[in-house]
Computed example of a mutant assay.
Amino acid sequence: MELFHLSVDSIFKPCQSSEESLNKNSSAKYDEVFCLFDGDRPEYKQAIMDAHRYSVYKIKPILSIPCFEFWFLLHYRYTSSPFENYKQVIAQLNKEFNKVGIEDYDKSKSGYYGLLKPQLDQAIANAKKLEGAACTNPLTQVHDIVIYLQAQKILAVNFFSNSQ
């Protein structure tokens, strides 16, 4: 399966034109924009530097090094051991999956959210622990998006339950 990759400018330039539109139309607003950068692509470092040019648009770069699947691994165990590449992460992830009766990881399959959700709190705790250890490989900030979305859900539930 071949994935396509976008340049940072192709991702963020629309934000620039959206921001110009926001100045004209104050009813269209956004609170946060998250952009996940997967460390298994060599150009991710340049993409992060380029992303900072667009920080005025409330874009928060989210890193996952060496790859997004490291976030999945944190659902099962903490590790600060460095990984050279995606394949090393997948080998460890598959070991954890197999321990609990889950088939080997396949990037083209869906349904992982339901499998991982019961361990979400553990993944967040492991990611925070890793963050506290100031590791750069491995690293994930995916928990930042998850925590943000959980807070938004609580706000929405409270808003709708108080408005009735």
Rank of each mutant, 00 (worst) to 15 (best):
N25V: 11
N25S: 09
N25G: 06
N25P: 03
S26A: 07
S27G: 06
S27D: 12
S27P: 02
A28N: 14
K29P: 00
K29L: 13
Y30N: 02
D31H: 11
D31G: 13
D31W: 03
E32N: 14
E32L: 10
V33A: 09
V33H: 00
F34T: 04
C35T: 08
L36F: 00
F37G: 00
F37S: 05
D38T: 03
G39D: 00
G39A: 04
D40E: 06
P42L: 09
P42C: 08
E43Y: 12
Y44V: 02
Y44E: 05
Q46S: 15
Q46V: 13
A47P: 06
I48S: 03
I48H: 10
M49Q: 15
M49W: 11
H52P: 03
H52K: 15
R53S: 15
R53P: 00
R53C: 14
Y54S: 05
Y54I: 10
Y54N: 06
V56T: 14
Y57R: 06
Y57G: 09
K58W: 02
K58A: 09
I59T: 11
K60N: 09
P61C: 07
L63S: 01
I65R: 03
I65K: 02
I65F: 05
C67T: 05
F70R: 01
W71H: 01
F72P: 05
L73I: 06
H75S: 08
H75L: 06
H75V: 00
H75E: 03
Y76L: 07
Y76W: 09
R77H: 02
R77C: 11
Y78L: 06
T79R: 05
S81M: 11
S81H: 07
P82R: 06
F83P: 02
E84A: 13
N85H: 01
N85T: 04
N85S: 06
Y86I: 07
Y86V: 04
K87M: 04
V89N: 07
I90Q: 07
I90Y: 03
K95E: 15
E96N: 10
N98K: 14
N98A: 14
G101P: 11
I102N: 07
I102P: 02
E103L: 12
E103Q: 14
Y105G: 01
D106L: 05
D106N: 15
K107Q: 04
S108L: 08
G111D: 11
Y113S: 14
Y113P: 01
G114R: 12
G114E: 15
G114H: 13
L115A: 13
K117D: 10
K117S: 14
Q119S: 15
L120V: 10
A123N: 05
A125K: 12
A127G: 04
